[in-house]
C-alpha cells in the first residue's frame, strides 16, 4: 500500500440521495480555499441513485498524482448498505478511522472489541431535532469530518456550504456546519479515539493551514508528489 505522508484519504459513504457527493465536494472546495490540493471522485453508477454509494476525497500539501485509493484513512458511513459495502471491512484495520451515524447504521456491533475505533454520532437525528431539516445531515457530517481532519477551517467550510446553498437553506446549512463541528469537538473532548490517521498527515496539514496556508507548499522538502 502506497501511503505518503502529507495526504489524507477520506471516504464518505451512504445511500444514494443522502448528499454524500455534495458533502465531499464542499470539503474539497473548502480545502482548496485552505491552500491544499484536493481531488474528489464519486460513484456514478446506479448505486448513486439509491444503493450504497461513496465519494472519495484526497487532501494533500502536494499535487495529487493518483486520485484513487484502496483503503481510506477516514471513512464516514451513513447507511447499513454502505456499512456492508465499505465500512465493515475497515473495522480493526490499523490507522483507519470510522465515523458512523449511530441511528442509520444498525449493523455496527457496539459491544465488539473494535468499538473504540468507531465514532458513532447521531447526525441525522441532530439535523432533524436541532435544525429541523433532515436534508442538512450531510453538512453536519462534513463539518464533523473537517473537525477531525483539522486542516480545513470551520469558516471556509461554512462559506462554501453557504455559497452552494439555495437561498432558503443558507441559514440552516450554516447552522449545520456549526453543529457538526461542535458535535465532533465535544466528542473528542470526552473520548480519545484509539486510532490516529496514518503518518500523522493531519497534524502536518493542520500546521501548514495555521501558518497561513500554502506558503510552504513549494518550499517543503521531499517528494513533489503525493501518491
Amino acid at each position: 500500500m502506497v501511503s505518503a505522508a502529507n495526504r489524507v484519504n477520506v471516504r464518505l459513504s451512504g445511500s444514494g440521495g443522502q448528499g454524500i457527493a455534495l458533502a465531499a465536494t464542499v470539503l474539497a472546495e473548502a480545502a482548496l480555499s485552505s491552500e491544499l490540493y484536493a481531488t474528489m471522485l464519486q460513484e456514478h453508477g446506479p448505486e448513486a441513485r439509491g444503493g450504497a454509494t461513496r465519494a472519495d476525497l484526497s487532501l494533500s500539501l502536494y499535487p495529487i498524482a493518483n486520485p484513487q485509493f484502496q483503503v481510506p484513512d477516514l471513512c464516514l458511513v451513513l447507511s447499513d448498505k454502505a456499512w456492508t459495502r465499505f465500512g465493515e471491512r475497515l473495522v480493526g484495520q490499523k490507522d483507519v478511522g470510522l465515523v458512523v451515524d449511530v441511528d442509520r447504521v444498525g449493523l455496527v456491533d457496539v459491544s465488539g472489541p473494535e468499538r473504540e475505533s468507531i465514532i458513532a454520532l447521531p447526525f441525522e437525528e441532530a439535523a432533524k431535532v436541532r435544525i429541523g431539516a433532515k436534508v442538512v445531515t450531510n453538512m453536519i457530517c462534513a463539518a464533523s469530518l473537517a473537525r477531525l481532519i483539522e486542516a480545513i477551517s470551520v469558516e471556509s467550510l461554512s462559506e462554501v456550504a453557504e455559497r452552494r446553498s439555495p437561498p432558503a437553506f443558507k441559514e440552516k446549512n450554516r447552522q449545520a456546519i456549526k453543529l457538526g463541528w461542535q458535535m465532533m469537538d465535544e466528542y473528542l473532548d470526552a473520548h480519545a479515539p484509539s486510532w490516529r490517521l496514518s503518518g500523522n498527515q493531519v497534524g502536518r496539514l493542520a500546521r501548514v493551514a495555521d501558518n497561513g496556508g500554502g506558503v510552504d507548499k513549494e518550499g517543503v522538502a521531499g517528494s513533489a508528489l503525493s501518491a
Binding site: L41, Q42, H44, P67, Q68
Partner: peptide
Amino acid sequence: DEVVGHMREG
C-alpha cells in the same frame, strides 16, 4: 477516461 471526466479537482 471516465475517471478524468468525473474527477473533481482544483
